[in-house]
């Protein structure tokens, strides 16, 4: 069987977003799930929750790591202002290019992770390679933590009911009780 492997650029922002969303557990740990695929603001970083229900912001820019970092920091700041969490969000920055002075930045920011992204086409299937930029200091976030006992219920609907068609009297009466 003949197989073909080719490397390519990570593509445009939206394609990279989709690939990163599908790599949620690689970036935010097992049990991570997407809370918002795009936060408001430049670059629309992705908001995830890890298994411990702690926020993780994924900021990315295929060609410019500095832009991704700045966009991510802004998103974390906005998030902290609007949704006070017990702990500030963890920030993951993904780019094709390595940030200048990345080891110094990492050494000074314990809640920051940097990844260099590469895309490969293997037999017509797109695969995303994420290489984590490491420092010499141990990564506290990688330590396993027990799952919380309490299981929060899903949040109430955020749908704007005003934009939906009104119910007739008969329909409203039907849905009044189970």
């Amino acid at each position: 069987m003949k197989s073909s492997v080719t490397s390519s650029d990570p593509g445009d922002l939206e394609e990279l977003r989709t690939l990163l969303i599908n790599s949620a557990e690689k970036l935010a740990g097992p049990g991570a799930f997407i809370l918002k695929p795009g936060l408001p603001g430049d670059g629309s970083p992705i908001l995830m929750h890890n298994a411990e229900h702690q926020p993780v912001v994924i900021s990315f820019d295929p060609g410019n790591g500095e832009t991704a970092l700045i966009n991510g920091l802004r998103a974390v700041e906005r998030l902290t202002a609007t949704r006070p969490e017990p702990q500030p969000a963890r920030l993951v920055v993904v780019s094709q290019t390595l940030l200048p002075a990345s080891t110094t930045i990492l050494a000074n920011c314990s809640r920051l992770q940097l990844y260099v992204v590469r895309r490969q086409e293997i037999n017509d299937t797109t695969r995303l390679w994420l290489d984590r930029v490491q420092t010499d200091t141990p990564d506290e976030s990688a330590a396993e933590q027990p799952l919380p006992e309490d299981r929060p219920t899903l949040a109430k609907s955020s749908i704007d009911a005003d934009s939906l068609p009104a119910l007739s009297e008969e329909e409203a009466s039907y849905f009044r009780q189970l």
Partner: peptide
């Protein structure tokens, strides 16, 4: 119903891929 349910589609996507139905 709300964005908080996105974990369901995320997990379904992974499950389909695991069952040899590559999904995104």
């Amino acid at each position: 119903d709300s964005a908080e349910q996105s974990w369901i589609t995320h997990d379904l996507c992974k499950l389909l891929t695991r069952r040899n139905h590559s999904s995104i």
